[in-house]
Design a protein around this nucleic acid. Structure first.
Length: 605
DNA sequence: ATAGGGTTAG
């Protein structure tokens, strides 16, 4: 009881606000839709293609005439919008084409070309995979029609790998592919590749590409140097960094703001705080410290090395100098205080952030939430959540994760469940490990249908989930007497269900499952190679005998059996005969004798 | 078309 009332209060009022703000959209559409029809009576006479190109409300025009157009014509429209930089229309049209399966390789290619700098990296990579799938499917090769990807395409794709997980192996594939297409890596490609190496902590590989480009007679520019430098920062290799800076200077390049800030990162990661402070002073005197970034780098490093007081000194100095800040500095100090369990200081600074910036920040909230959860300060957790709600800060992926883990750790599984549902409805994917453990605990707590909901969230969000999970949920569904769901799970995953569990499912279902599904379950069991026991038939027959109005189902079962090599055993046969008045003696006798004849015939064959 | 900063958890 207490759990649900808490859950009701928290996650999250915005789900209501959000959906209401979304509900204004269709409204807006229907207005524009009707007005465009009434003010443009001639539109119906325009060709569908022109209607699309000149649509004032593209989505509704597409709904009206989109299906009349071929993929080729739609691609022309994409091009039309692309050439006039109508990005909104490109997106709307492409989305419609995807939803209506009216896309080919060229659609993807045009779309990527026009939207390259409007889309985030992972989206572009996904689209790129779609192209490859589509080109195999349509047997079209990109090389035709000038569609061969060029170096610009590849640099866009590789740059996209910087922020993406698995970006490094993906980059290797792309390098291979561009070489297969007879392209050679140029300066920009090398720049992007080095950036990927750096963001994946691969300094040796970065060095290797750096040397390789030099050996090809290319002179590294500041981008290359800064990425290699950044690659050294993860491991704090300041010796290599210093050598690199010397090399750079000897090539006649002057370290700029980015280079020096990155060098600072190396020193900080290497624990050279004295040298770092000197470098910050150098940045200040060069006018490179007007932004908070170098201070952030140093503060964060100090705090993570346990020197929280020194970090705060930098923070205060920065505030005194009125360095331009977007709030990162606050965020770093707040999370540092939280890590050190200095909650009063953290709260004070959070308050300060709120008054300085006149807003709140989800990252700061997450830091505090996480800290409160870690020390188990339930009241502060709830207070923080209330505050987020008050200030209309939408929880993000991390917020949900923090909360769910916290609720699980406190054995508040129903609350965790509600939070996962909320998370899912906001479009965030909980991890499989989290779901899997929650399913287990919900099962233990007899929250069977809740466990099944989590299973479904997982199943419909991922291509493949741990095979053992199907069997696990099957046990839970049986325990919860959710027969129909159990049947669906069994049917969809029969190959992953062990023999003993199959047996358990079969007899539990025959005993208590939905009578209308008994024959379906029998057939499913048989078709997945399970040898149906005579006891199971006896159980099914008993169920039918208990409900004479299901006569047709019994007859159907009896008729189906001999074809698959089954025959009722003598005791079941007697049971049926004893009750045959309920079904029509004549009919039952016929069916039973047919069973024997068919079986005999099969045996003699 | 290529470069630099904060939050989870183990």
């Amino acid at each position: 009881m207490e759990i649900t009332s808490v859950a009701f209060g928290i996650p999250f009022r915005h789900s209501i606000t959000d959906s209401s703000s979304q509900s204004t959209k269709p409204f807006r559409h229907s207005i524009t839709d009707s007005s465009s029809q009434s003010t443009k009576p001639f539109s119906a006479r325009k060709s569908p293609k022109l209607q699309i190109q000149h649509a004032s409300d593209l989505p509704s025009t597409l709904t009206r005439v989109g299906q009349m157009l071929t993929v080729k014509e739609l691609n022309t429209a994409l091009n039309h919008f692309g050439n006039s930089n109508k990005f909104n229309n490109i997106s709307q049209l492409f989305l419609w084409m995807q939803e209506n399966k009216k896309v080919d390789v060229y659609s993807y290619s045009h779309y990527i070309k026009f939207m390259a700098n409007k889309l985030d990296a992972s989206t572009i990579l996904k689209l790129y995979n779609n192209i490859q799938d589509a080109s195999v499917k349509d047997n079209v090769y990109m090389k035709e029609d000038g569609l061969v990807p060029d170096l610009v395409t590849y640099s866009t794709l590789i740059a996209g790998c910087v922020k993406v997980k698995d970006g490094y192996p993906k980059t290797l594939e792309l390098i291979q592919e561009l070489q297969d297409n007879n392209l050679r890596m140029d300066d920009v490609i090398y720049g992007a590749v080095l950036a990927v190496c750096a963001s994946n902590g691969k300094w040796e590989e970065a060095e290797c590409y750096f040397k390789q480009m030099k050996s090809e007679g290319r002179s590294p520019n500041v981008y290359h140097y800064s990425s290699l430098l950044n690659a050294y920062s993860a491991c704090g290799n300041f010796q290599k960094a210093d050598v690199l800076i010397q090399d750079m200077k000897s090539e006649g390049l002057v370290p700029n703001q980015v280079i020096l800030t990155t060098l600072l990162k190396v020193y900080v990661r290497g624990g050279l705080f004295e040298k770092s402070r000197e470098l910050v002073a150098e940045l200040e005197s060069s006018g490179y410290a007007e932004d908070e970034m170098p201070y952030c780098v140093l503060m964060d490093g100090l705090a993570k090395a346990g020197q929280i007081h020194e970090a705060k000194v930098i923070f205060d100095k920065m505030m005194k100098k009125q360095v331009r800040s977007d709030g990162y500095a606050h965020s770093i100090m707040i999370s540092a205080f939280c890590r050190a369990k200095l909650f009063q200081e953290a709260k004070q600074l959070a308050k300060d952030f709120q008054t300085t910036f006149n807003k709140y920040d989800v990252v700061i909230m997450n830091s505090m939430l996480c800290a409160f959860c870690r020390v188990g300060e339930m009241d502060s957790v709830m207070e923080t959540l209330r505050k987020m709600d008050e200030l209309a800060i939408s929880p993000d992926y991390n917020t949900f994760n923090i909360l769910i883990k916290y609720f699980c750790s406190k054995n508040m599984y129903l609350l965790a469940y509600r939070t996962v549902e909320d998370m899912h409805s906001k479009g965030y994917q909980p991890t499989e490990e989290l779901c899997s453990s929650l399913i287990f605990h919900l099962g233990q707590a007899k929250a069977h249908s809740e466990a099944f909901s989590i299973y479904n969230i997982l199943k419909y969000s991922k291509r493949s989930i741990c095979k053992a999970l199907h069997e696990k949920i099957l046990h839970i569904l049986l325990a919860g007497k959710l027969w129909k769901d159990a049947y669906v799970v069994f049917k969809d995953n029969a190959t992953f269900i062990s023999g003993p569990t199959t047996k358990k499912f079969a007899s539990a279902f025959m005993k208590s499952g939905n009578i209308n599904l008994i024959n379906d379950v029998m057939k499913t069991l048989h078709s997945c190679g399970y040898k149906i026991d005579p006891d199971l038939f006896e159980m099914a027959v008993s169920r039918y005998l208990g409900q004479p109005e299901k006569k047709d189902l019994l007859l159907h079962l009896l008729q189906w059996m001999p074809g698959q090599g089954y025959v009722v055993d003598p005791s079941t046969r007697n049971l049926i005969l004893k009750n045959s008045h309920l079904f029509g003696r004549q009919l039952i006798a016929e069916v039973l004798s047919k069973q024997r004849v068919k079986l005999k015939a099969q045996e003699s064959r």
